[in-house]
Design a protein around this nucleic acid. Structure first.
Lengths: 223, 223
DNA sequence: CTTGTTTGCTTGTCTGACATGATGAGCATA
DNA sequence: TATGCTCATCATGTCAGACAAGCAAACAAG
């Protein structure tokens, strides 16, 4: 087990009290820091660090001199995280919901704005993904590079810099999936389609192919 | 000025060191907590709470016995803060291109997923923006809160995390614009439309209203 | 060269204290 | 009675100092 980071553990405990056991409900006031730290068997400093974490995540709201409360916006999140598995599941779903917005547009923009060299880069990166899959290596790095090359060709610097955030968040949980073989197969086919349209600078075709690619991945992941 | 929350202030200071002045670069190690707390003129506890906040936001990474480091994923966020000099017109255009992708979607999702309380929050935030404009106060904070409330109601945690990054990047350039009066007028009208559709949970209406709002803003900004 | 130990850095946690904001009970006054 | 003030009380905010524990490089022994 992970025995590290007491304060993190405390944060998880409190979150569990809200999202799972529902000892604490949205809008409800928490016991004072002295009492709560004693009940949880940690010092007040440690408890406060845990609270700060949950606070910046929008789970708790602290009012000086008044008390600490469960955010009312947590109403929508309770029952979503019955366990860690479902919790990460909903997070990945959020991520793919975001990718479905960004990446098809990036693919379309790439068709309109890419230089010839960037076009070649995309095709080369796609070939690298294919090689990784066929040689049974880890394809995550190559896959992210493929999407990154498309983002570069879109000439939208901001989305380009947003991409690694999304990818790093996805890769955490995607590697836990069992159906890696199926996922690889679908990736192989979808990437070929995407590259087909990008090579011909067909923006709407590329957009549709990217949407399909992401939806297929979501389907395999059971989202 | 805001005299509240020293630890929050410290967190902002550190973030500024990374995103604006670039005293701290992605991957770089921070000074030890003793040294840094002394340099910032606060106690170690306060500094640690600030670090915890930035940590849960993915800005910093802490390794016990080794040190605290600026996350490498922050590479994409530098220069998107208050640095208006290096922010070229095309970058702002890139930003709005991004907002056009997901803010309309957030508005639509909010219509479908918001709780009654969250709906009220959105309307209250909208009223606050109106009050700020009519009393000729700075509307940026209220405006960002309005969009944030919509993001919360969308129940997509990831996009909610992305929002402050984009807003912080946009806010500075907007405040430099000369046509504040016109922008305020348009905002007043557009927000009313957005709230009209959200209140009735008309997803497509809200989406269209948000698109119009952003395009109007871009028009005023000359993008 | 390899291995084991020491040493000095780092963060993690605990304790106790005082400062400051929010609140309501109780009292004085009109 | 009604109103306004003071103050005790409880909440979080901040501080200071101490010790535990992890990590890595320098160092000593084989």
């Amino acid at each position: 087990m992970e025995k590290k980071n007491l304060s993190r553990q405390v944060a998880d405990d409190i979150y569990r009290m809200i999202a799972v056991t529902q000892e604490l409900r949205p809008g409800q006031q928490l016991p004072g820091e002295m009492i709560l730290s004693d009940k949880l068997g940690v010092s007040r400093s440690t408890l406060r660090e845990a609270i700060k974490t949950l606070c910046s995540q929008g789970v708790l709201e602290v009012y000086r001199g008044k008390g600490t409360y469960v955010a009312k916006s947590m109403e929508g999140f309770i029952n979503f995280g019955l366990d860690d598995l479902n919790m990460s599941r909903s997070r990945v779903k959020d991520l793919f919901e975001s990718r479905l917005l960004f990446e098809p547009q990036l693919a379309a923009l790439a068709c309109q704005r890419a230089t010839e060299d960037e076009l070649k880069d995309i095709l080369a990166a796609g070939a690298e993904v294919e090689a990784s899959i066929r040689s049974d290596r880890d394809r995550t790095a190559a896959d992210q590079d493929f999407h990154k090359k498309i983002a570069i060709a879109s000439h939208n610097r901001f989305m380009l810099q947003l991409l690694p955030i999304i990818h790093s968040a996805v890769s955490e949980t995607i590697s836990l999936n069992e159906q890696q073989a199926l996922l690889s197969e679908i990736t192989l086919r979808d990437h070929a389609q995407i590259m087909y349209f990008i090579e011909r600078r067909d923006a709407e075709g590329a957009r549709a192919a990217m949407i399909l690619h992401l939806r297929n991945a979501m389907s395999v992941l059971g989202l």
